[in-house]
């Protein structure tokens, strides 16, 4: 489903060059839930953002569903329709109501009829459990509710893959659960998911595979059991000791 080959992303600043992603090769299979963990600044968010073309690659290759993202003639907009993304800061459109947030891209990008888009939006709001808020503006919702709307907005495009960039990091602790619950449900339904998170509980419970990144490199990967109980690398052990 997703294949990255020696992926590199370098940010060139005035007085320093940062290798945010430094040669990551990974293969994510359909319906797999992959959780990427690592200390802050390890390049995990940058890696995720490369997967839907929000960051341009410095070198390497990404192939999503058979389409080479790094090829010049690839229309990224077509790829992005198939790859949903959920952001740390929700990024709901503040000038649109909850319903309009979910309807807009369906109409503009997928060219769906208004009735069809509305039906889909209401169905998804039901699914994420905030059907009664459809006419509210985002600012009137709690963080957890906003993130659930953001998930519904991404799902409305019928993506084949969902990317989550620290979806619960900006939430008050009591709201983390409701968002994770929606994500677990998605995983059960067989969605291909790549999740950058600090929620070790989620990784342990839901992930098929855990990737541990540090300083732009893939340090270790494995099943949650292996990863949390018998990590091989010294760097992984140190990190886990700090967070668990």
């Amino acid at each position: 489903m997703i294949k990255t080959v020696d992926l590199k992303k370098t940010f060139v600043g005035r007085d320093q060059t940062v290798h945010a992603v430094d040669g990551i090769s990974a293969h994510i299979k359909p319906s797999e839930v992959v959780v990427i963990i690592g200390p802050s600044g390890s390049g995990k968010s940058t890696y995720l953002r490369c997967l839907n073309g929000l960051e341009t690659l410095t070198s390497g290759q990404i192939i999503i569903d058979g389409v080479d993202l790094s090829a010049k003639k690839t229309d990224l907009n077509l790829v992005r329709r198939e790859v949903g993304m959920v952001f740390q800061q929700f990024n709901l459109f503040p000038h649109k109501s909850v319903l309009q947030n979910i309807v807009l891209a369906q109409q503009v990008v997928r060219k769906r009829k208004s009735s069809e888009a509305l039906e889909k939006a209401r169905m998804l709001l039901q699914k994420v459990g905030i059907a009664e808020k459809e006419n509210e503006y985002p600012i009137r919702l709690s963080g957890g509710q906003q993130q659930r709307v953001a998930i519904a907005r991404a799902l409305a495009m019928d993506p084949k893959i969902m990317l989550f960039d620290e979806p619960t990091s900006a939430l008050d602790p009591e709201m983390v659960g409701e968002v994770l619950e929606v994500m677990k449900q998605l995983a059960r339904e067989g969605m291909t998911m790549v999740v950058v998170t600090h929620e070790m509980g989620f990784a342990r419970e839901v992930a098929d595979r855990v990737l541990f990144m540090d300083q732009g490199k893939l340090v270790e990967e494995g099943t949650p059991e292996h990863f949390f109980t018998a990590p091989q690398e010294e760097r992984t052990k140190t990190f886990l000791r700090q967070v668990l």
Partner: peptide, 23 residues
């Protein structure tokens, strides 16, 4: 307008003109 707005619009498959007009 925060950068995240453009990113959210692009991640939904909108091109730059569409994101400009609608978001």
């Amino acid at each position: 307008i925060p950068k995240g707005q453009m990113e959210a619009a692009r991640s939904l498959g909108m091109n730059v003109p569409q994101a400009m007009i609608h978001i």
